[in-house]
């Protein structure tokens, strides 16, 4: 039987790029999952609804272990949209697709994870320099509301207004907030350790520069409600009030 095409509209296929969080587990997996639980506990909901890619390059596990790992992550509400660096023998039907050609950006790393990974994930080819000269900053003239996220891997983000609790800014460069910062900010998220965060009133839920995190409870109480700038020295986020 032939199907008759009743609708002559063509299907629209669009390209779109997303900034995904890449998780690179190391062995033993159960210990790695414990560390993940610790991160999740301190940064509730961080993985919720976020595209997460699992990088298993050089990880000596077989298909059964990978299946277990994926279901272990699923139980933690981390759903994997793709797998990188897997050998064909590790993959089976029903698993997330194999992804190739990802451009490395930030290491979403944890300060307490004391560089346990045998080696940091190296890009297959040296990170090519971004073509400069185009828009390297954006300015947002509205408050960023709860539930909204501004993702700008190309450069700096300036917000003329506040960033609400439950909102987030992810910038490749520095982040400037001319208002209260009550949500989350991740600056230097494409591996830029010289990125800074500036805000007029610090009440953030989470701050990160170049993948180094700080939760609200880790921030000095004396900084709360103050105009503050934050930067990275080594693996430590530094902060001082702006007078």
């Amino acid at each position: 039987m032939t199907k008759v095409l009743t609708d002559s509209r063509s299907i629209r296929i669009k390209g779109r790029s997303f900034l995904a969080v890449v998780l690179s587990p190391d062995l033993p997996l159960d210990e790695w999952l414990l560390r993940l639980d610790d991160l999740a506990a301190r940064s509730a909901g961080f993985f919720l609804g976020r595209p997460v890619v699992l990088d298993v390059t050089d990880l000596a596990i077989d298909r059964t272990q990978l299946t277990e790992l994926i279901s272990g992550l699923g139980q933690r509400n981390v759903s994997i949209m793709g797998i990188e660096g897997a050998r064909p023998s590790m993959l089976g039907p029903g698993m997330p697709p194999l992804l190739k050609g990802g451009r490395p950006v930030a290491d979403f790393e944890q300060p307490s994870a004391e560089s346990a990974a045998a080696e940091p994930v190296q890009p297959a080819k040296p990170a090519t320099k971004e073509p400069r000269g185009q828009t390297q900053s954006i300015v947002i003239h509205e408050p960023v509301r709860s539930g909204q996220s501004v993702i700008f891997p190309e450069g700096d983000v300036t917000v003329v207004g506040s960033v609400a609790s439950g909102a987030e800014i992810i910038a490749g460069g520095s982040v400037h907030i001319y208002g209260a910062l009550r949500g989350r900010v991740m600056a230097g998220s494409v591996g830029n350790s010289s990125a800074r965060i500036f805000c007029r009133k610090l009440e953030a839920e989470l701050l990160a520069i170049d993948g180094i995190y700080q939760m609200a409870e880790d921030m000095a109480p004396s900084l709360r409600g103050q105009p503050v700038q934050l930067w990275l020295e080594g693996d430590v986020i530094m902060a001082e009030t702006l007078s």
Binding site: E142, R145, S146, G147, Q148, A164, S165, G166, A167
Partner: peptide, 12 residues
């Protein structure tokens, strides 16, 4: 207040 903030985002 937080839920209202969320709704304002949706209104926009």
């Amino acid at each position: 207040v937080r839920d209202s903030d969320r709704i304002i985002g949706l209104l926009d």
